[in-house]
């Protein structure tokens, strides 16, 4: 039982990381119908910026954090202008490939600028964790779970209860109609990319104390987060969260009770099974993509 509780906590913690990155996927997908394969690199870039500011330059944590987020907003904007926007009238295929190119570019630019050594980034708390009975709760995982809850709540409020949020929703549902209603569609898409880069950045900075800051950190998380997005039903925020948490838990228990080396395979196996037997995702109604 102790064992199960400990595994469950870790699974949920990892799952929350996937869910956080998956949120960014969902946003961009809803706004542009495009899967951003560079979403994981947003996390990686943010973590490296944070290392430069708070470790190398020794600036205070919060200043570094806010500046990192500013940098991510910029990355999101440039990403939109350089990768998505010029291709917005083409089919999804060129866009997917361009985002893959962007992912290679971002990862290797950081490698060229900073070198291949993994870096350490401290967390927000000095205490590494709490022993709660038989279960050890890593404080950083607790923080990630909390931030995920807050961000999901914020996102819900933002999309359902603010004018800007509603405009964004209108844009994602029908661009032509939105522009007829006087909504500046390009600006809305820009905003989506910026927000999504911020989300990715927050996820990156949050997981850095656990996974360390490395060039590869983004890619692995992003693939799992993407799987979570599909399991949750594309474009469904709640689905992506549940999908992420489920993946984290399945992976952890799979590793404990089936096989450690094949751990990464579980996520993909679950994904393939979902695609074959329940392609609409957990709650989704949409079967295929928009025609």
């Amino acid at each position: 039982m102790d064992l199960i509780l400990q595994l469950l906590f870790t699974g949920i913690g990892i799952g929350a990381v996937y869910a956080l990155v998956a949120l960014g996927f969902v946003l961009i997908f809803r706004a542009t119908n495009v899967v951003n394969f560079a979403q994981g690199e947003f996390s990686m870039v943010a973590a490296f910026v944070m290392v430069v500011l708070s470790v190398d330059l020794g600036w205070p944590y919060w200043v570094s954090f806010l500046l990192s987020l500013c940098a991510m907003a910029l990355v999101g904007a440039v990403f939109n202008l350089g990768v998505y926007y010029p291709l917005r009238h083409r089919s999804f295929l060129p866009v997917i490939i361009a985002t893959i190119g962007a992912s290679i570019f971002l990862a290797n630019s950081v490698l060229a600028l900073y070198g291949p050594q993994p870096q350490v980034l401290q967390g927000w708390f000095d205490t590494p964790g709490i022993q709660l009975g038989p279960v050890y709760l890593d404080s950083q995982y607790l923080l990630i779970i909390a931030v995920t809850i807050v961000l999901v709540a914020f996102q819900y409020w933002f999309f359902e209860h603010t004018l800007l949020g509603k405009k964004l929703q209108a844009t994602s549902q029908d661009k032509e109609m939105a522009s007829l209603l006087g909504i500046p569609v390009s600006a809305m898409i820009m905003l989506t990319f910026v927000y999504s880069a911020l989300l990715g950045g927050i996820a990156g900075i949050l997981v850095a104390p656990i996974l360390f800051v490395s060039i590869q950190m983004g890619a692995t998380i992003a693939l799992k987060a993407f799987a979570a997005t599909i399991i949750g039903g594309f474009g469904d925020v709640a689905g992506a969260i549940i999908g992420g948490l489920a993946l984290g838990v399945i992976e952890t228990f799979g590793a404990a009770y089936v096989s450690v080396p094949y751990k990464d395979g579980f996520a993909f196996l679950v994904l393939v099974l979902f695609l074959i037997f329940r392609p609409q995702g957990l709650f989704g109604e949409r079967v295929a993509e928009k025609a």
Binding site: L3, L7, T10, T220, A255, A256
Partner: peptide, 20 residues
């Protein structure tokens, strides 16, 4: 005797196996 795949993000199951 426990193997693991490189670039694992979490070792909780491995550590618990060691403990047990």
């Amino acid at each position: 005797d426990q193997g693991y795949a490189n670039q694992s993000q979490d070792f909780t199951p491995v550590v618990l196996a060691v403990k047990q």
